[in-house]
C-alpha cells in the first residue's frame, strides 16, 4: 500500500505495478466457487482500490472483459490473543462479473 503516490484518475492509465497491488489474491471458498457458476470471480483487493481500478486491473491482467464490479469492505474481527484483545485487518472483496464467454481460472494464478 503506497499512499500518497500519484494516482491516475483515468482508470485506463493504471501502472502495471499498481495493478498488481490492487488485486491481492483470489478468494477460493465454497461461496466463491458457487458464484463462479454465474461467471463471477471474487478477489481480495487493496482497501483503497476503486471499482474502475479493479475493472482495468482485471481486464488487463487476465485479458477478459468485465461486465460489473461489486465490492465490499469486510471489517476485521476482534480476536483475543493470549487474553489480549486484538484486531484482524480489514479487507476489501471485489466480485467481478465477466462478460459472456470470458472466464478466469483463479486456481492457476497469473
Amino acid at each position: 500500500m503506497s499512499k500518497g503516490r500519484a494516482r491516475t484518475t483515468a482508470a485506463g492509465k493504471l501502472s502495471g505495478e499498481r495493478m498488481h497491488e490492487v488485486i491481492r489474491k483470489p478468494v477460493i471458498t465454497e461461496k466463491a466457487t458457487l458464484a463462479g457458476e454465474h461467471n463471477q470471480v471474487t478477489f481480495q483487493v487493496s482497501l483503497d482500490a476503486t471499482k474502475p481500478e479493479i475493472r482495468t486491473a482485471v481486464e488487463t491482467l487476465f485479458k477478459v472483459k468485465v461486465k460489473a464490479v461489486n465490492t465490499l469492505r469486510q471489517q476485521g474481527k476482534t480476536k483475543r490473543f493470549r487474553g489480549r484483545p486484538g484486531q484482524r485487518s480489514d479487507y476489501k472483496k471485489a466480485m467481478v462479473t465477466l462478460e459472456e464467454g470470458h472466464s478466469i481460472d483463479v486456481t492457476t494464478g497469473i
Binding site: 478468494v27 477460493i28 471458498t29 465454497e30 466463491a32 466457487t33 486456481t107
Partner: peptide, 11 residues
C-alpha cells in the same frame, strides 16, 4: 474455505 466434503471436484 470449504466445509469437509464440500470441495468441488474440479478443485
Amino acid at each position: 474455505g470449504f466445509r469437509p466434503g464440500k470441495v468441488p471436484e474440479s478443485l
